[in-house]
Simulated scan of single mutants.
Amino acid sequence: MNKNLRAHPMKNPIILALDVDTRDQALKIADEIGDIVGGIKLGPRLCLRYGLEFVQEMAQRAPIFMDNKHFDIPSTMEAAVRASFDAGASLVTVHALSGAEALKRMAAVEAELSKQRPFKVLAVTILTSWDQNSLPPVMNPQPIAQHVTELASLVQNSGLTGLVCSPHELDLLQNKGLYLVTPGIRFSMNDSGDQKRIMGPKEALEKGASALVVGRPILEAKDIKEAAKQFVMAM
């Protein structure tokens, strides 16, 4: 089923963004489609409410992408990444904007921990909820694409190879040896929600994505199991 072997450490390239509010909801959905999707993304919405024991419980059902986007001093970021790994996470996010020192520290931690089991640190470039008009005013007045390519270079130079970017920047990052995770994946471009830069699953994979994050198109479907299968079959 996995047509993109670079999806590893996920089972296949489709990662479910499990943005629900309760432990019972999360476990029910994980039990229903944990064997279909390549992995499950957990963010602060669940992690802060239920803690690392909940993450451990979820990791028994599917590979876990722990998406808390750490952005702090290097020692604090390292502690957070190590705690995420200990809880069972296979992917963890930090902000590329945290700078070279922090990213080099993350690369060293990734190299150490990945000797124990498959594990990657992903650096977030520009959030897919931002477009050119909503970039923070303190950022240089340059196109989003330029911000992304400059941050990607910073990440690579640090020793990391994992990146989170919009599918619209995939063309810029092809053939650079990067593990590219792209949110903003939709079958219908009319179903964008608060995502500004979106794309269909097949097109994103053809442009070089390693894994795709899908949330509402699965979670809000009448039949979430069938919706998950449709995304996997679209690869």
Rank of each mutant, 00 (worst) to 15 (best):
A96F: 03
A83P: 03
D194A: 08
T93L: 04
A62M: 07
P141F: 14
E203C: 03
G177K: 12
V92F: 10
M139G: 05
G162I: 10
G200F: 01
E101N: 02
R82M: 06
S114P: 00
A62W: 05
L97H: 11
P183L: 12
E112Q: 11
L163V: 15
L160I: 04
S98I: 06
D86C: 04
T93C: 13
C165D: 08
L122C: 08
A83G: 06
C165A: 15
M139N: 09
I144S: 09
A62F: 11
I64Q: 11
V124A: 12
E169A: 15
I185D: 07
K202F: 02
L170V: 03
A111G: 09
L113K: 09
I198Q: 10
I144G: 05
L173E: 01
I198C: 12
E110C: 03
H95K: 09
G177F: 11
T125L: 06
E101R: 13
A145L: 03
L173K: 00
E101Y: 04
K196Y: 15
S129P: 07
T128L: 11
R197S: 06
R117P: 00
P136C: 08
P63S: 07
V81E: 10
T93G: 04
T161C: 14
D67A: 12
D131K: 08
L160C: 07
A108H: 00
I73P: 06
A107P: 00
F85R: 01
A100D: 13
D67E: 08
A87P: 01
M139C: 13
E112D: 15
L151M: 13
V164M: 03
R105F: 00
T76H: 01
N190T: 08
N68F: 12
L180I: 11
E101W: 01
V109Y: 05
F187H: 14
N190W: 00
A152Y: 10
Q195C: 08
L127A: 08
L178D: 02
P63H: 07
Q174A: 14
A89H: 06
L173S: 04
D194W: 04
D72G: 11
S114R: 10
R105V: 00
T161I: 13
G159D: 04
A89P: 05
S114L: 01
L91R: 02
S134L: 15
C165L: 13
I64P: 02
W130V: 06
G99V: 08
P183C: 10
Q174D: 04
E101S: 09
M77W: 00
S98A: 15
S129C: 13
G88H: 11
C165T: 15
P74C: 06
A87T: 02
P201L: 06
F85K: 04
L172W: 04
A100F: 03
L178N: 02
A107R: 00
T93R: 05
L180Y: 11
G99S: 07
N157Y: 03
A80K: 14
H95Y: 14
D194V: 02
E110F: 04
S134R: 10
H70A: 15
L122S: 10
L151N: 01
I73H: 02
A102H: 07
T128C: 10
G162L: 08
A111H: 06
L91W: 02
V121K: 12
L160W: 02
S188D: 14
L151Q: 07
A123F: 05
P74N: 13
S188H: 09
S98T: 14
P143W: 14
L178I: 13
H70R: 15
K104E: 04
